[in-house]
Amino acid sequence: MLKKRSVTLKGHATSLALEPEFWSVIDKELSVTGGSLAGLVTSIDERREPGQPLSSACRVWALNRALTAGQG
């Protein structure tokens, strides 16, 4: 089941729906770095491929983060 969270990107409110497993990776990153959800999502948004949905970019980011953490 997808869980939605609201963030503000470039002054516009948007919601992001991801599976709990992806939110878990994101939440862990935020607890380690002390960053904000809006800051992380903005960073992901700025680096995503043209035409790539934001939710997809966030999933790919979380997957890459989880894979990298598993290698350490």
Rank of each mutant, 00 (worst) to 15 (best):
T14G: 04
S31H: 05
R47H: 14
L9C: 06
E19G: 10
Q52S: 07
A66D: 07
L30I: 07
Q52W: 07
S55L: 04
T8S: 11
A62F: 11
E21H: 13
W23H: 01
G11N: 02
L67K: 14
K3V: 14
V7T: 02
N64V: 11
G72C: 07
G70Y: 12
G70D: 06
A62W: 03
K3F: 09
G72W: 08
I44V: 15
R5K: 15
G11A: 04
E21Y: 10
W61I: 06
G39E: 07
W61E: 01
P53K: 15
A17W: 10
V25M: 02
L18K: 04
T42G: 12
E21K: 14
Q71F: 14
R5N: 00
A38H: 06
N64Y: 13
L54K: 04
V41N: 00
T33D: 01
P20I: 02
L54I: 08
V60M: 09
T14C: 12
G11R: 03
R47N: 10
S24C: 06
L16H: 00
G70C: 08
I44Y: 07
S6R: 15
D27P: 11
C58Y: 03
G39N: 10
V7W: 00
T14E: 08
S24V: 05
K10S: 05
P50S: 04
P53H: 12
S24H: 12
R65K: 15
G72S: 10
F22I: 05
A38R: 13
L40A: 07
L37M: 14
G34Q: 02
V7Y: 00
W23M: 04
V7L: 09
L67F: 13
K10P: 00
E46K: 15
G51M: 08
T8V: 12
P20H: 00
A17Y: 14
S43V: 05
P53F: 11
R59S: 04
T8D: 02
K10L: 06
H12R: 15
A17C: 10
P53T: 09
S55C: 10
L54T: 08
A62C: 08
P20K: 01
R65F: 14
R48E: 01
T68E: 11
K4R: 15
T14K: 14
L40I: 09
S36V: 08
E19D: 09
S15C: 10
S43R: 15
R5C: 03
R48S: 03
R48C: 07
R48H: 03
V32D: 09
L63D: 04
V60K: 06
F22K: 01
G51N: 13
R5M: 04
G70A: 12
P50Q: 02
V41Y: 01
W23N: 00
D27R: 06
S56E: 09
R59N: 01
E19K: 14
P20E: 00
N64M: 13
L18M: 02
F22M: 08
K28L: 12
A57Y: 11
Q71E: 13
T68F: 14
S24K: 14
L54F: 03
L37Y: 05
A57K: 01
Q52N: 05
L40D: 06
T33W: 04
G11D: 05
G35I: 05
P50F: 02
V41T: 00
K10F: 08
Q52R: 14
G39A: 06
A57H: 04
E19I: 06
K4F: 13
C58I: 07
E46Y: 11
R47S: 12
R48P: 11
G70T: 04
G39F: 10
L54R: 03
E21V: 12
A17I: 10
